[in-house]
Design a protein around this nucleic acid. Structure first.
Lengths: 337, 337
DNA sequence: CTGACTCATTTGATCGTTCAAATTCGTGTA
DNA sequence: TACACGAATTTGAACGATCAAATGAGTCAG
């Protein structure tokens, strides 16, 4: 197999100079249409591909996004990152960006990795997942003037609108509100909520969606009695649902903060009650219960847009999730016209 | 922030030439110990990191492994790739290799991507997952003299020992045999198997492990009656278990070819029977049933070893999985001394 | 017909590293 | 003393692309 063709070879073949070839690739509009076509034809004919490393050396941009591959989280929801990664990879590819993976054992270690990757000019932007209150990583990145976007909003008081911290998040509140309203619209009223213990921003938001919908429906009385909480495992979901069902014998449905909790509810209830989960994981599909889908494609799109984005463009984006209705959902009531 | 230091800066600081700095990094043994130390000190002091792209341009090696990120598979088992990826990333990093992700919509598309990545000198080796009978991808890679390793053995007749096709796989047969023997050792005898429909190499191997163990225990009579099959979903697992239980009322345990099928069995049986799955996914942990762990760390290690491996080293590796026993397993019988 | 101006294209230099060949230095041998 | 030899180090060139500045070809007003 002979040497791969370079800009030089293409230039020779098309009877133009190196730079013109380069321009056809990077700034087509400044090249006269007929030359452009001739060069394109030569590129095609020779099967030329720009050498990524050479380009990166010259431009001093790696066009690569670093993302930490989390150690498998406990719950079933681990696959969200997986799907997000898939969407991100696909869309990044379309705009000429690559995804470089790395691992870390702690936030501090992750910061160490940031340094390594930046110093080696391996990446020129980061995507962070699973942000938490007082996250040292974002602070470090801001301090060191690195490009990044977080999937997950910052949970500090004022951080949400800090223009130095771009973020994309899913509007969990709206998602759970939708799910609850969907059940209300079908005539159910005693709708319980199984969530996470208070204090996690994400969890509180999701609970808030349920509260919103119940109150709007004039069912704001009994909300304390109708909710239970547990850590994000199937067992906790099952137990929480048990407690709830014991306290509210005429419970009509359960909305859960995650598919893990929802699966616990489903296992416990043996499909006697409609259950709605959150994340639309393969498990919800497999078990046939409804779930709120995070629309990770849109999240990925938002992340890339913010990474590229002009400084004056909005610095964050809230994606509205979508309720996916499955067989265990109660049948729809004919809509009012 | 000022410009990052280069070999030149380090050379100046240490009072040597560029090349000596380069040698300290790439061939330390040809540099005199005291010079070496002086250069190392300068590197440390300046915080120098070699520029990855420059190095790759010069050496014409990308030190990057391409791996396709599968579109989320249906079942729960999607997380295997996830965990494999994690192990691979971690270990690759340790030997100076990077992992580059890409996506593809079909094997043909994947082959197109191979071409793209090779032509752009983005990667110099591939890791393939989910190999299947008559896989066109491996053929293409062999044809085009590309370095690669598959996770999953080739299923063609003679391919297994083809030295041009290096592979690492998990010995599913041994895993299921172990699982079955573990139940036999605890005194159970009527152990059913819920597998995939015949014809998939992996599935047939796993079934084989169950057959092996049963026959070795002198229970080879009724094997046809004791097995059922279904596609790899929770629902299929539930239904297959139902059929099995209907036919074999005194069924004592179920061994399944996957955690998806196993979950179906668990849901159906409500923990009345011990169930053993395969893959040790988070779901098995969450639901508390035993499962066979693929030891993805060892698989990753094997993959990297084969990628680097000398041509005369063994061209494939079979990893023995490990049974993870959980609460739903029957209590151990005191071992014979 | 000249000069100013624009648009398209070319030329030389450069990014940071490593390869290959050249140089320097110390040491042992005839 | 001279010479060869090997080890340690240095020097010039190259990898393949893009940047910045220079050149060439038209076009139009004066």
């Amino acid at each position: 197999m002979s040497r791969l063709p370079t800009v030089h070879d293409v230039a020779l073949a098309a009877g133009v100079s190196r730079q013109t070839v380069s321009n056809v690739l990077n700034a087509p509009d400044i090249v006269r249409p007929d030359t452009r076509e001739r060069v394109r034809e030569a590129i095609e004919r020779l099967g030329y591909r720009p050498h990524a490393s050479a380009r990166r050396l010259r431009t001093q941009k790696s066009s690569t996004i670093g993302i930490r591959l989390d150690p498998m989280v406990d719950g079933i929801s681990g696959s969200i990152l997986d799907r997000f990664l898939h969407a991100l990879t696909e869309q990044a590819d379309a705009v000429g960006l690559r995804i470089l993976l790395f691992t870390a054992t702690s936030p501090e270690d992750e910061i160490r990795q940031f340094g390594r990757l930046i110093d080696g000019s391996d990446v020129d932007a980061f995507v962070l997942t699973s942000t938490f209150h007082g996250d040292p990583r974002t602070e470090w990145l801001i301090e060191h003037a690195q490009r990044f976007v977080t999937f997950g909003r910052p949970w500090g008081i004022d951080d949400m609108n800090d223009p130095r911290h771009p973020w994309v998040d899913v509007d969990g509140r709206a998602g759970v509100r939708d799910a609850t309203e969907s059940l209300l619209r079908r005539g159910l009223q005693r709708i319980g909520f199984v969530g996470w213990p208070g204090g996690s921003g994400t969890g509180d938001e999701r609970r808030g969606g349920w509260v919103d919908a119940m109150q709007a429906a004039g069912l704001g009385e009994d909300l304390d009695r109708l909710q239970e909480a547990g850590v994000d495992t199937v067992a906790a979901g099952r137990d929480a649902t048990s407690r709830l069902a014991a306290r509210v014998p005429d419970l009509e449905a359960v909305v859960a903060a995650s598919d893990s909790l929802a699966l616990g509810a489903v296992v416990r209830e043996q499909a006697a009650l409609p259950v709605v989960g959150f994340d639309n994981t393969p498990v919800s599909a497999a078990m046939g219960f409804s779930s709120v889908d995070q629309r990770l494609g849109e999240v990925a799109e938002g992340v890339l847009a913010l990474l590229e984005g002009a400084p004056d463009a909005p610095r964050h984006r809230l994606v509205t999730p979508e309720l996916v209705i499955r067989s265990s959902h109660p049948p729809a009531v004919p809509d009012e016209p």
